[in-house]
Write a protein that binds this DNA or RNA. Structure first.
Lengths: 312, 312
DNA sequence: TTTAACTATGAATATAATTCATGTTGGATT
DNA sequence: AATCCAACATGAATTATATTCATAGTTAAA
């Protein structure tokens, strides 16, 4: 019945003071507006404006409609502009999940650096995913997942962020703290503490323990880095953590951290996004910010080697 | 570009969880909605919802549009209902003006009695008119004018309210206070104090003084009854006032009030409204309330004689 | 009274939305 | 994996709707 067209007509009418000029303003003929308004008036059984009298004056019904117009039309304009920006990737939603808690260390500063430049992007951390964040990303429930274990999923692309070393965190008084390096065999009688992710997806197991045929005595999980650190410090087990995540604890003398094996264990971190979002300016800008902040903030990280290039 | 239709579609979509059911809800075919949404998506260059996955999930752009829908559609519904009610006269605007200030005496209680029963009617007193309220009524700037002097104006109808006597108010110590009745000749050497209305429109002049060929020494005006009373009490002149307006002052011993001539001077009060508004329920209800309140509140008033009936 | 500016009207036209009939797809089921 | 079902997509035909055109009728001001 009522339509945006009518609200726009009424606004033009009250701005211009006559049907004829309103028609010009809207780039239609005066006749079109006349028909339009007559249909409205007939439909509701009210007069909208007084024809005699110049400049034209609205009736109470006209005033009512004009008030509605000035409430509604700005909302519509805003929505249209938002849709256009979404369409061009100048605006977007960025609901993020991380698979390892310590990534907050560089993700939060990255978001803080990004936010002021992209105020229209809806930023959010979604903490409750832990497992299975990638399927949620594919379903469109998330928009970016930080992972160390990219899996080939249709419609998901993995953007390499950086390469980092995994160190074994042990209590200062732990016997392994006396060694400069840790071998796989050293861990055969240890309890491993990990983030709540399947061992198949953890590089300590895949790159280090399993190739050597070693399995820890048991594995227990904790979802926050601080809890893992507490457990390790109180001799409840050992943990393989990113070098940049243990750094502050080794610096403050709470833990020791030792490289694993002869060359150390290195892992890559990726940002996973849906391929449809990948090229969007707001997304590229975010990825650039993350790389920038990471390389400035974290010590000991490297670029991820390209697939075509030399690879260990 | 964007249209209410689209907002309604999006609302139905999110309520029903599928295009097909949304189409049922809106009483159109699924095909119609499919075309509609595709046009929108093409127009803005965004996806609005993810096709795979049941129940369907909106993209950020879809969410944006849905948010707009839930902001806008209630406003539209409200406007439509208001227009319908305006059309049926269940709702309206009642901006009132009075030509004599003492009418507040019964008008304010009338409005107070009316307001709770018609909360949708926009009531207002427009004080600044004094003169020329009737043309403003005809132009649609006012909706009801209380007048004692109906003038034939196209499109204005006069609804009789009540008939009342006009008394001459004089100071208690004034020489005329000693007479039981006042003759026209008695006023030839007096100063008249009136409301700021042309003498041609005042019944004391038309019915009483001019027929007897009498003109007061001078006329001065005051717009509030209280000011007229003060002037009269302090011997600055005399005033012809409605019996119900002087009543409280004579009761409290501030003034004396005397009838004019042998039979007294009687005047009629009318509510003037545009003929298009006259029959509307909200208007009839107001007129009924005014009559009811007046006859219960004011002493000494009568019904206005019908034109066909016996007339003095 | 005349005039200039504005609004109304009906038929013709142009535009846009909807349906119809059918094809395609994704996800669940066996 | 093959099948099936429900849901969505598509293009042409149709219908509905809005707009224009041409003209007539009003109104307010000169």
């Amino acid at each position: 019945m009522l339509d945006l067209k009518h609200l726009k007509t009424l606004r033009a009418l009250s701005e211009s003071g006559s049907l004829t000029r309103a028609a010009d303003q809207l780039h239609v003929t005066q006749s079109a507006l006349s028909h339009q308004i007559r249909d409205l008036e007939d439909g509701f059984g009210v007069q909208l404006f007084v024809r005699k009298s110049r400049p034209l004056r609205l009736t109470p019904a006209g005033d009512c409609l004009l008030a509605t117009a000035s409430a509604v039309l700005p909302l519509i304009a805003e929505a249209e502009s938002a849709l256009f920006q979404l369409g061009k990737g100048q605006r977007g939603r960025l609901h993020m999940a991380i698979e390892c808690h310590s990534c907050y260390l560089w993700l939060i500063p990255s978001v803080n650096a990004y936010r002021p430049n992209w105020p229209e992007v809806e930023l959010d951390f979604v903490g409750h995913w832990h497992l299975d964040a990638l399927p949620a990303l594919a379903r469109g429930e998330l928009d970016l997942v930080v992972t160390a274990d990219p899996q080939p999923i249709e419609g998901i692309v993995y953007e390499p962020l950086f390469r980092f070393e995994i160190l074994l965190a042990v209590a200062l008084t732990h016997s392994l703290a006396e060694q400069r390096r840790i071998s796989a065999a050293d861990l055969g009688d240890q309890i491993m503490i990990t983030y709540p992710v399947a061992p198949e997806r953890l590089d300590v197991f895949r790159q280090f323990l399993w190739p050597a045929g070693v399995e820890p005595v048991s594995v227990r999980t904790a979802d926050m880095t601080m809890m893992i650190v507490q457990l390790v410090a109180s001799q409840r087990g050992v943990a393989a953590l990113p070098s940049w995540a243990v750094r502050e604890y080794t610096d403050s003398g709470l833990l020791a951290a030792r490289p694993l094996g002869a060359e150390g264990v290195w892992s890559n971190l990726y940002a996973s996004v849906r391929s449809e979002d990948y090229a969007a300016p707001f997304m590229q800008a975010f990825l650039a910010t993350v790389r920038d902040v990471s390389f400035r903030t974290l010590s000991g990280i490297r670029a991820v080697p390209t697939e075509s290039g030399p690879d260990a």
